Computed example of a mutant assay.
Amino acid sequence: MTQIPEAFLEVLAAGAAAAALVVGWLLFRARRLVGCLRAERDAALEANEHLDARRQVLEAETRHLVGVRLPALATYLAHRHVPVPGLLHPVFAGTHVDQLHRGALDQVAKAVAAECQRVDEAAQAVMRGATTVIQAQSYQLQSKIDDMQHRYEDPDIAEDLLELDHLNEQNLRRIQATGVLCGAWPGLTRADSHLGDIVVGAQSRIRGYHRVQVASKLELPIAVVARAVEPIAITVAELLANAVHHTHGSLAIDVSLHQVEAGACIVIDDAGVGMHADEVEFATGLLSGQQPILLTELGDPPRSGFAAIGRLVQRYGFSVSIDKPAPYGGVRAVVFIPGHLLTSA
């Protein structure tokens, strides 16, 4: 029997040991590689889950923008007391998503405001043309009534004509106010007129004129220059109509005329229910002439009186304030006429 040399056996054993080491190292490397691959797979799955969750949150935020925030914005533009909700998920606050959504809201608000302005200007143009025609016809009717009052001496007819004349004056006041609100000219050019005569003329244009009590505290005869006579008459008539409307039928409206250092004042005190702070704030904005006016924001029926006064204030340079309470608990309205609109009577 042939014997294998011991040297060969030693070499063979060494080779087997080396092969075992190589195989072990390869198995170790394979296990490490498998572990790395598993870790990368788990990380990829986790990242995918994170992206999917973020996508779902982003979709929910976009649905919130389209279904909640944009409709609320449309309502807010028509009714300023309605709030517009913020982000559904605060995690987006200050992010690029938040900026994009805010940009979308701003663009929609600008587009809606521009369209509202365009529609309102078109409506004002139509109303301006209509009131000009109706106002001219009211003046013609007034002339006819005046002519009939001179031709008929029967007391009953005279009384009926007087009622018709007063009714026409009320219609004319409303037409004038609407026209002025829509940018029309007041409609009459008068001569310089005494301040007391302007107030009495304004008194004749309202329902319940007999309840208005006028007291002059002027030391000198003061007149208003021609170009401002009709605007101030319209203003006083609207303020008197508002005072009479909000005061009980048995109570009087006190009007007083005052001369001041820088001009003259017409003070109107009523004994009505007064105004809340938010009503005073809204009315003050209209009377200042600085607040943009849309017909759609004046209510139904439209509260055009203060808005029309604001247009006249802005155009002619006098002022109206209602921020002081009347002595009787109602509203005090003060018309201040600066010296450049006054002259000697």
Rank of each mutant, 00 (worst) to 15 (best):
T2Q: 08
P5M: 09
A7I: 09
L9T: 13
L9F: 07
L9I: 12
L9Y: 10
V11D: 15
G15N: 14
A16P: 13
A20Y: 06
F28T: 08
G35N: 09
C36R: 12
C36T: 15
L37Y: 10
R41W: 11
L45R: 11
R55D: 09
L58K: 01
E59A: 14
E61C: 02
V68G: 11
R69H: 13
T75Y: 11
T75H: 13
H79V: 15
P83C: 04
P85N: 03
F92I: 06
A93M: 14
Q99P: 08
R102T: 08
A104I: 11
K110R: 06
A130R: 14
I134W: 06
Q135H: 13
A136L: 06
A136H: 02
Q137T: 12
Q149C: 04
Q149A: 14
A158Q: 07
E163W: 06
L167T: 14
Q170H: 05
T178K: 02
G179K: 00
L181G: 00
T189K: 10
L195R: 02
V200Y: 05
I206F: 00
G208H: 01
G208V: 01
G208I: 00
R211P: 12
Q213Y: 09
S216T: 05
P221R: 07
E230Y: 12
I232V: 15
I234T: 06
T235E: 04
L239N: 03
L239W: 02
S256T: 01
L257E: 02
E261C: 12
A262P: 08
V273A: 15
G274Q: 05
E281Y: 14
E281A: 08
L294G: 03
L295M: 00
E297N: 06
E297I: 00
D300P: 14
A308Q: 09
A308Y: 00
R311Q: 12
G317W: 10
F318A: 02
S319A: 07
I322R: 03
I322F: 03
K324L: 04
P327L: 13
I337E: 02
L342D: 00
L342Q: 01
